[in-house]
Design a protein around this nucleic acid. Structure first.
Lengths: 332, 332
DNA sequence: TTGAAAGCGCTAACAG
DNA sequence: CTGTTAGCGCTTTCAA
């Protein structure tokens, strides 16, 4: 059951009340075209008196150009995506754009369905996470003629605009850091990599770097389900049960790494002397634990901001690498 | 610069390609009214062949009933609100509703501006956090004729629908729990309460309960800015510098409480024997730390779900109390 | 500087 | 079961 709007004041009523034509009201309200100061006053007075709220649905239809920006994100539990939304929405709001979103749960099929549903609102742009989309999604997006922004990943070919950082580079640098620190018996605890392809990319180039050094990964533990502190804790516990001689563990992200950290804390495993821990994301909480977490900080909010700015400016297709920062911390 | 859509296929073109009238296509697509199986097939074939994507903007304007649901939330950094969004968006997506949002940064003035901007999209409902709105916001919302849902708070008068739990009851039960456990020298560490009125309500009834017991709050520390782990840590440090003989501390929420926990861990303060800690929200991470956090778990995702369901069902005005659960944990 | 009029793409009666 | 015909509320030429 949809809602029927009642007594909505229309532009025509405002025009009548102000004693001017409809187009004049429209011009005044959008501050576009020319009109006299007196006309302006009369229109504004009528708007005020009647409590007129413009109908953007009608406006968008008439002008065939929308100020809607659609986000299709994998998850709202993962702070990564709410950070991006946060950065973007601040910029969008300032520019009178409106953010619209839906959540795919990391399901490519759902992504396609939701992206289609989004296009029905004729947004100015669709923002997606990463590069892994179904052929259907790609084709539809390309055909839509609407701007497409791929976020948080730069390891692939951009459809239109891409803003983020290289997950492969992050994996590489994480490995290089651990090697530089002298760790050689390294393990991995991660979550479902088929779904989180960005974590998968980090892991694969992490391993490549270890291999190139002649000290391949010793053991890995992949937990079922999404990343979480609890899963990181259990993952490390299981990993250590099988591989007792590790000197460092790389986690798929900070949530997982924090779980690992808490496991060590509870078990009396000394960090980093007995076991080093390294994460990914650079969450604030990682700096507040007794030993600051060693990790890579990613510019998530900035990613959202830049993406929004590019869309608003209708910038040409491009890929923007925002880089990341390695935080030495005290756990590795 | 807004985007001009190109070569968009319209319903009229589909109708022509299928050799039927426009309204027939419309009926088939919405699966509403009657049409023959053969007609259906021909229409669907044409839709497929042309890659037609319905224009919801036009559809909404024509039917004067929208499937847009607008969220006006204080923050996206606070997991509380992303949890609500998550619960709601799952339900909305299933019902082909579309979520739209904007972020107020806890600024009532901004809330009014953003709510107005939202109404311009003629949403089926506007969802807001809590009851504290400016007179302007209230008046406008009432006049809009659109459904209004107030979330996460039940201590006040609902404008239309309210879904959540009582923050006053939560504060009261937290205090009662600490008293029951034998704590008498209790302190508080909180964040900006003027902005987060729900935290303010918890604190005020927490204090009332202590007063009624004849053991008033001994000391409080209010940190500047938003709640965060880091702020909780610093807040507790400052509080303990002034009040050395506390036996328990109540925090404005779990983020803050975790900061306090980490402070104790780093300083070698025994929990709960030397100092007890109590939070609010029931975040997952609170269960993964070495000593599970004592706190109150709130049904945030459910709040979003129920809110969305009520809106979709166009339910009558009502207030729904989802309650909360006290988690005994190991820190108090 | 202003108003009249023609749509934007779709839905919703209403006939047939 | 299906097509025709008005709009929905606004923007945008185009004349005046």
């Amino acid at each position: 059951m949809e809602f029927k709007h009642q007594s909505t004041v229309t532009l025509a009523e405002v025009a009548q009340a102000a004693g001017v034509g409809e187009s004049t009201v429209s011009r005044v309200l959008r501050n576009h075209g020319s009109f006299s100061g007196r006309t302006r006053e009369r229109v504004m007075a009528a708007v005020e008196r009647l409590g007129y709220v413009p109908n953007r649905i009608a406006g968008t239809l008439a002008s065939t150009g929308s100020r809607l920006v659609a986000f299709v994100i994998p998850s709202l539990s993962n702070i990564v995506f709410s950070d991006v939304l946060r950065g973007a929405s601040a910029v969008l709001e300032e520019n009178r754009y409106q953010a619209v979103f839906s959540v795919t749960d990391y399901d490519p099929g759902k992504e396609e369905a939701l992206a289609t549903a989004m296009l029905a609102w004729r947004p100015a742009a669709v923002m997606l996470a990463g590069y892994e989309h179904t052929d259907g999604t790609m084709k539809m997006l390309r055909a839509s003629g609407c701007r497409v922004v791929e976020l948080l990943d730069l390891d692939g070919d951009a459809l239109d605009i891409a803003v983020g950082f290289s997950n492969r580079a992050a994996g590489r640098e994480s490995a290089a850091f651990l090697l530089r620190r002298g760790y050689r018996r390294i393990g991995y605890v991660g979550h479902d990599l088929d779904r989180d392809t960005r974590a998968g990319k980090r892991f694969s180039s992490f391993c490549d770097t270890l291999d190139a050094n002649g000290t391949p990964l010793i053991a890995r533990e992949i937990v079922a389900g999404a990343s979480s502190v609890e899963n990181g804790k259990q993952g490390l516990e299981r990993l250590l049960a099988r591989a007792t001689d590790l000197d460092a563990v790389y986690f798929s992200n900070d949530d997982m790494a924090l779980g690992g950290y808490f496991h060590c804390l509870a078990q009396g495993i000394a960090i980093p002397s007995q076991l080093a821990i390294f994460g990914y994301n650079g969450l604030d909480i990682g700096r507040a634990i007794p030993q600051p977490l060693s990790t890579i900080r990613t510019p998530r909010v900035t990613t959202g901001q830049i993406a929004a700015e590019l869309v608003i400016a209708n910038a040409p297709p491009q890929a923007i690498d925002l880089g990341f920062e390695l935080i030495e911390g005290a756990t590795a």
